[in-house]
């Protein structure tokens, strides 16, 4: 069963300027010892400030809050990018992160090759990719363009392809930063259906959004964050 459990989760970003990144400064700092020791770990920003929550199967969580409230950081922590600075975070189940759809895709490669690049990054075995590649191409409606380098694509085509790839393989936990709207009127209807289907197959959804309307439509639980803490957490 999929599960997310955060207990007292703290995430601090270290802030490096060129001087604290340099070896020389660190050596000097080490040599000068206690005098400026309070400075020795540099400045850091507390993005997540000791939050606790758990999300269980079937929950669709909307994550709201103003800019800099810690939504994106929390999503990345859930994706396993940031290890907790303190506290603990347990994520059970496979994670599909729709945070950056075109991650790893390269303009020099054809759409076909990029499907493989993107899928491999999602950890899909080659044999499985091969089975699904036709379906992905068909859904993206790229036709013969699939054999062209991706740099020749319009931004709409680009998005259509990456969207088709990212929603081709269901996962237990889906992470999303803003609801995805893809393509022109006709395609966007189709995409919306596919995305809903994709989420329906998942066990947990965490959607960070600025749109209260969208969250109300999709989610059954709302978490409002502010300055890295949870302001409000409850069902919608």
């Amino acid at each position: 069963m999929s599960l997310i459990r955060a207990a007292n989760l703290i995430i601090d970003y270290p802030i490096f300027d060129s001087s604290s990144r340099s070896l020389k400064k660190t050596l000097i700092r080490a040599a000068t010892g206690g005098r400026i020791a309070n400075d020795s770990r540099g400045i850091s920003v507390r993005a997540i400030d000791g939050i606790s929550f758990s999300v269980e199967h079937g929950e669709r969580v909307g994550l709201m809050g103003s800019n800099g409230a810690g939504k994106s950081t929390l999503l990345r922590a859930l994706a396993g990018v940031y290890a907790p600075t303190d506290g603990s975070l347990l994520v059970k189940g496979s994670v599909a992160s729709l945070l950056d759809l075109s991650l790893g895709m390269d303009g020099e490669f054809t759409g076909y090759e990029n499907i493989f690049i993107r899928c491999v990054l999602m950890g899909i075995p080659r044999s499985v990719i091969k089975k699904h590649v036709d379906e992905i191409i068909e859904f993206s409606e790229l036709g013969d363009y699939i054999k062209m380098p991706m740099r020749t694509y319009s931004s709409g085509m680009h998005l259509r392809l990456s969207f088709s790839v990212c929603t081709a393989f269901p996962a237990d936990i889906v992470l999303m930063d803003e609801w995805l709207a893809v393509g022109d009127a006709e395609f966007s209807k189709k995409a919306e259906d596919r995305l809903r289907e994709f989420i329906k197959k998942s066990s947990i959804l965490v959607l960070a959004s600025h749109s209260a309307e969208q969250v109300k439509k999709i989610c059954n639980r709302l978490i409002i964050m502010e300055h890295g803490s949870i302001l409000k957490d409850g069902p919608i």
Binding site: G104, D106, E108, F109, E113, F116, I117, V120, L121, G123, P125, R126
Partner: peptide, 18 residues
């Protein structure tokens, strides 16, 4: 992750000499 590094590493070379 054999699949991942094998394919991506190969594509890195392919890309450089495309």
């Amino acid at each position: 992750y054999f699949n991942m590094w094998f394919l991506l590493g190969w594509y890195d070379i392919k890309q450089r000499y495309r």
